[in-house]
């Protein structure tokens, strides 16, 4: 029972990290409709930024996390200029491919700059584990959950309660019409890529302590983010969080009772079932067109 509880806690902790990864992905989806398949690689870029900053100054990551976010914002705007704006009037699959290519370029850049080996970033506050009775949880995992909760709530409030959030959604739904009501859509899109990438970077800086960064480490993360968003409901923040939790619970809890390979298989079977039962994802697609 203790073991089971411990596994569930571990699953939730990993799920929080995945949710943080999915969050930046959803951000860009919500604001531009673009599927950014460089997202996982941007998460790694954030991890490398934390590794680099951590090697310059031996301080906990919480102090330089804002700097990571700023660096990543700039990288995100660059990504928009390179991979999104030139293709803005092309079909979505073109953007999908161009971001995928940018991801490969990033992977190569990581090898050149940091070598092919894995690196670990400094912890958010400190390393070590906290004990709650017989349950233990690493301080980093607690920090990750707290940061994830704050950013998830902020993003939800941003999109639903603020003027800029409404404008981002309007831009995603009909960019030209958004401009025709006075919204500076291109600046907003660039900022969106910047913010989404900053979120990826924060996720990477947190993940890189417990789970390391390495050049191709972002590939599965892009896939998890995509899956989380699809099972949760396209564009739904709550859905993405639930999707991330489902993935991590399969990886951590289910795999304690069957092999890792079987747990992965069961995850994908579950995904298929969700698609059959609820093709629009758990939290559904709010937006439809009238038939």
């Amino acid at each position: 029972m203790i073991t089971f509880l411990q596994l569930v806690i571990n699953g939730l902790a990993l799920g929080a990290a995945y949710a943080l990864v999915a969050l930046g992905f959803v951000f860009i989806v919500n604001a531009t409709g673009a599927v950014n398949f460089a997202h996982g690689d941007l998460v790694m870029a954030g991890g490398y930024a934390a590794v680099g900053l951590g090697s310059l100054a031996q301080i906990p990551a919480v102090y330089f996390l804002p700097l990571v976010a700023v660096i990543m914002f700039v990288l995100g705007v660059a990504l928009a200029l390179l991979a999104y704006f030139p293709l803005i009037n092309r079909p979505p699959s073109t953007v999908f491919i161009s971001t995928l290519l940018c991801g490969i370029i990033l992977q190569n850049a990581f090898v050149v700059l940091f070598g092919p080996q894995a690196h670990a970033a400094p912890p958010l506050l400190k390393s070590g584990v906290a004990h709650f009775g017989e349950i233990e949880i690493s301080v980093q995992a607690i920090g990750t959950m707290v940061v994830a909760a704050i950013l998830i709530a902020s993003q939800y409030l941003l999109f639903t309660r603020t003027q800029i959030g409404r404008r981002l959604r309007a831009t995603a739904e009909d960019r030209q019409m958004a401009q025709a009501v006075g919204i500076p859509a291109f600046a907003l899109i660039a900022a969106t890529f910047g913010l989404g990438t900053a979120l990826a970077g924060i996720a990477g800086a947190l993940l890189a302590n417990q789970f390391f960064v390495y050049p191709t480490g972002g590939i599965p993360l892009s896939v998890y983010a995509y899956i989380a968003v699809v099972i949760g409901g396209w564009g739904s923040i709550a859905g993405a969080v639930i999707g991330a939790m489902i993935i991590s619970l399969f990886q951590v809890v289910v795999s304690a009772y069957v092999s890792y390979a079987a747990a992965t298989g069961l995850l994908y079977v579950t995904l298929l079932l969700i698609f059959v039962v609820r093709p629009q994802g758990i939290f559904g697609e709010r937006v439809q067109r009238r038939a």
Partner: peptide, 24 residues
């Protein structure tokens, strides 16, 4: 000028087909 700049100068546009933002 870009579209949004013209709008902000004082043009309102109700397009053919309405194009309201469906998810808002």
């Amino acid at each position: 000028l870009r579209t949004e700049q013209r709008i902000r100068l004082g043009v309102g546009y109700s397009p053919e087909g309405r194009r309201v933002f469906p998810g808002l």
